[in-house]
Design a protein around this nucleic acid. Sequence first.
DNA 1: GCTGACCTTGACCATACGGTCAGGATGCGC
DNA 2: GCGCATCCTGACCGTATGGTCAAGGTCAGC
Lengths: 210, 210
Amino acid sequence: MSQASKPNSKKERRQENEKLILAAAEKVFAEAGFGGATMQLIADVAGLPKANLHYYFPTKESLYRQVVQNIFQIWLQAADVFDAADGPQEGIGAYIDAKMEISRRHPAGSKVWASEVMHRAPVIQDYLETTLAEWTEGRIAVIERWIEEGRMDAIDPRHLLYMLWATTQHYADFGHQIDTLNAGQPLSDAQWEDAKSSVKQIILRGIGAM
Amino acid sequence: MSQASKPNSKKERRQENEKLILAAAEKVFAEAGFGGATMQLIADVAGLPKANLHYYFPTKESLYRQVVQNIFQIWLQAADVFDAADGPQEGIGAYIDAKMEISRRHPAGSKVWASEVMHRAPVIQDYLETTLAEWTEGRIAVIERWIEEGRMDAIDPRHLLYMLWATTQHYADFGHQIDTLNAGQPLSDAQWEDAKSSVKQIILRGIGAM
DNA sequence: GCTGACCTTGACCATACGGTCAGGATGCGC
DNA sequence: GCGCATCCTGACCGTATGGTCAAGGTCAGC
């Protein structure tokens, strides 16, 4: 009766179940919002009994918190490319590519993040004030250096960053609207490439880095 | 015992109550999402008994639908400036100004709209497919004409529009994040002007319209 | 193969939610 | 000032939700 594909040890099994639950939760939270999501639905999507979710994650909020933190990690990771570059064209270009790729590969995560921030960040306010604020200050310094070096125009770095975040996340958060305007079809590979290069072209030209 | 400030006729009173409820609903839906909002809380914010809401709006969904439709109207109205202009610099510049102003004056409405689209537009899918699709096609035609006339670079009009929407709405939808990164303070008048001019500068230069 | 820690789950609970309704208040048209 | 349609609302209802629990299963270490 037991599945053939489960030669797992107890610890492997625990990790596997947690991942299963987190993936299901991310999807459900993204589609319904925190308030609209139900533990029962998450359980159904994960293929586990509801009581089992509460064994791994004591409350709905703790599960939600874990989902949001995971997304934030991915988000931060993408930001690394910013520093590796030695100029705005390369750095910002790579950052746009990375964030567009996240929007494509993790649309649900992006939506959960957007939803969390839109609702005044009840769960990750401390992250915004510490980690995100520090990261932002660091990037502002980099951009200001590029401006001093004459490698791009004198743009307010904050608003440039907001523009990068807004534009790239839009393809995830408003993906449904974009798909609807694309005859109801998800963007094809070629269309994603168009999107990336359009965004890069406008912004990089717009800041005088091309 | 009766308020001194209520010399209202029955019809005036009806309109007033509906507006009161819609304003409260917009705020609560924006802060909690559809699923997280409760009729009781909307009633408290509006200062009316819950049963009264159900007199004016039979269901939670009908109330929500009205809120979303009102926002869509404001949204469409802002789009008029696009057509009144005779070139990209003026038209897109004015559109950015108008949408930034909406983000500033109607942040709750913007959030409700964003939330609705993020959750796959269960209520306004038909608007997306009809009104919004038509509006978009019209604007694409205008942009293509501008390109043909050599008044801006050959940019994919769709991605330009998405960028305009994304960037301007970001200041409403992610306003909390922006405020947090602004030392916890809302943007001042001067900062809003900076935001507007930064966005306009990058985009208008980016499409070769400056 | 025994034991104890870990895992699983159906059944259950208290609460909060959207929505209803009956009965009373109010104000318009006559 | 009367009658009637409209408006208002406290009390109530069925349901669905987040969370609990006790009883049983399973696996690693000895």
